[in-house]
């Protein structure tokens, strides 16, 4: 479904990604593992169109889509849950979700279905998004991405700063959405969680993929080495 071939990305003169190769199959969940500053967020930004990259380096269904705008990627079915949630403080929970729904792809997921799935969120749907707890805010952020009916969802640090219970809630919603065949790319600080949720993993170190393989038989020692670069 998604194929990344020798992708390089730059911030001005600084090169953040070096010849990254990666693929995501239909319905698959992959984890990107790496220390801070390794280039995980940069990779996500390149995939979703927030960063200019070479067109042929990102293929979606065989079509070169690298460097196309976020809106074009959204229309194709590639949506990002940005790091730090980034909810709209002037809008209510429902408005946050409906805004994305208006601009996304038509499909199964809409505000009504989400409120059915998440009764706790339905109760606070008319509150301002800033009045919610961190875990609830993250659920709204993921809901906002789901109502664009993505085929590939990119999740950047969706468990950061949440209580263990809230993290479980967030992953429960994600797994519910994956049942319909949606593919997911996870960036997750908790390596154990990242390996538990994903089918395959990629370790990124200083802008390069240094290790990849099926998550089920990942060698924790090798992953730790790749993570810390020792």
């Amino acid at each position: 479904m998604l194929e990344v071939n020798s992708l390089s990305a730059y911030y001005g003169l600084f090169q953040a990604l070096f010849d990254v190769d990666l693929r995501v199959e239909e319905g698959e969940c992959i984890s990107l593992i790496g220390a801070n500053g390794a280039g995980k967020t940069t990779l996500m930004r390149a995939l979703v169109g927030a960063l200019k990259v070479d067109s042929a380096s990102v293929l979606f269904e065989g079509q070169p889509v690298g460097g196309q705008s976020e809106r074009q990627q959204l229309a194709r079915g590639v949506t990002l849950v940005p790091e730090g949630r980034r909810l709209f403080p002037s809008l209510t929970v429902r408005e946050n979700i409906e805004l994305a729904q208006h601009h996304g792809r038509p499909g199964k997921w809409d505000a009504e279905l989400l409120f059915q799935e998440l009764p706790a969120l339905a109760e606070v749907q008319n509150r301002m998004s800033t009045e919610l707890s961190g875990g609830q805010q993250q659920l709204v952020a993921i809901s906002r991405a789901l109502v664009t009916n993505p085929r590939l969802l990119l999740c950047d640090e969706i468990s950061l700063g949440l209580s263990p219970y809230a993290v479980d809630e967030v992953y429960r919603l994600l797994n519910r959405a994956r049942k319909d065949g949606m593919s997911v790319v996870l960036v997750e600080q908790n390596v154990q969680r990242a390996l538990a949720e994903a089918d395959r993993f990629y370790c990124i170190q200083k802008g390069r993929v240094v290790l990849d393989g099926p998550a089920a038989d990942a060698d924790h020692h090798a992953v730790a080495n790749a993570y810390f670069g020792v």
Binding site: S90, H102, H103
Partner: peptide
């Protein structure tokens, strides 16, 4: 209307607005 929602989202965060598909 919809433009009102889009406007407020852009004022709050341009990055999040474009991630939600707002032009």
């Amino acid at each position: 209307g919809r433009l009102g929602l889009a406007l407020l989202s852009v004022r709050d965060s341009e990055a999040a607005a474009s991630a939600s598909g707002v032009n």
